[in-house]
């Protein structure tokens, strides 16, 4: 039963959502399956909201243990837990109308701490990419050469300075992105969609059982 019940639930729920998209009500009104599919999709949203809470509990459990046992790096764990508590308290107070002070504080904390930190972390990538491009982009063979020239042309075409050097760089970059890239992306997307459909069908029919967590 531990295997059959989840398989039946998966099949029934999957078929409701699938058929709701295929069939419509004869009178043009709301089809009963569409209503059920809507309800089921709402459940996904509710479960996702719970997942956020579960993640917080998990963080407290793991990092609370590190702090309690004073394991190496416990100060980092303590900082993380303190940040969660401070941001959660201020955020909840701001959200539920505790006054303009909390709203201002919430926004200022975000604008002055989280926003610049996040942007800085991402900006560091530019340095790694510059270093990696210099080391990896070598014309070792035909394929590498094609990739190298395409990358340089797109870089020059996208930056205003490229246009200053030669006014045809943007047209070439646009062509590369619009034609060869779109063709390749479309092929990947269609392939992935067919693969996704086949996997979904296997799950619905109970052939693929990985989602059951290894229950045999």
């Amino acid at each position: 039963m531990r295997r059959e019940i989840p398989l039946v639930i998966t099949f029934v729920v999957g078929m409701i959502v699938l058929l709701a998209r295929i069939f419509t009500a004869a009178d043009g009104g709301e089809f009963i399956l569409a209503k059920w599919a809507g309800e089921l999709t709402d459940w996904v949203i509710i479960v996702s909201a719970f997942a956020v809470g579960l993640a917080s509990v998990n963080l407290f459990r793991i990092h609370g243990d590190i702090v309690a046992r004073k394991r190496p790096g416990w100060i980092n764990s303590l900082t993380l837990l303190a940040a969660i508590v401070v941001f959660a308290v201020i955020g909840i107070a701001a959200r539920f109308g505790a006054g303009p002070f909390f709203s201002e504080l919430n926004q200022n904390l975000y604008d002055s701490i989280i926003s610049p930190l996040g942007a800085a972390m991402f900006a560091i990538l530019a340095f790694y990419i510059a270093s990696a491009a210099y080391r990896a982009f070598r014309m070792r063979n035909l394929e590498a050469s094609v990739m190298l020239f395409a990358a340089i042309l797109v870089m020059l075409g996208r930056a205003p300075v490229g246009e200053l050097i030669w006014n045809q760089f943007p047209s070439i970059a646009n062509w590369l992105v619009d034609i060869p890239n779109t063709v390749g992306q479309r092929a990947i997307m269609i392939g992935a969609a067919i693969g996704g459909f086949a996997t979904s069908l296997r799950i619905l029919l109970g052939i693929e059982r990985g989602h059951l967590g290894g229950v045999e």
């Binding site: 491009a133 210099y134 982009f137 870089m155 020059l156």
Partner: peptide, 24 residues
């Protein structure tokens, strides 16, 4: 900000060219 992006791209391209000349 696009000026910064322009010069950033130029620096990367310059290093790629230098790397390839040295490689050959």
């Amino acid at each position: 900000k696009m000026d910064a992006q322009s010069l950033g791209h130029l620096i990367i391209i310059a290093f790629i060219i230098v790397g390839n000349i040295a490689f050959f």
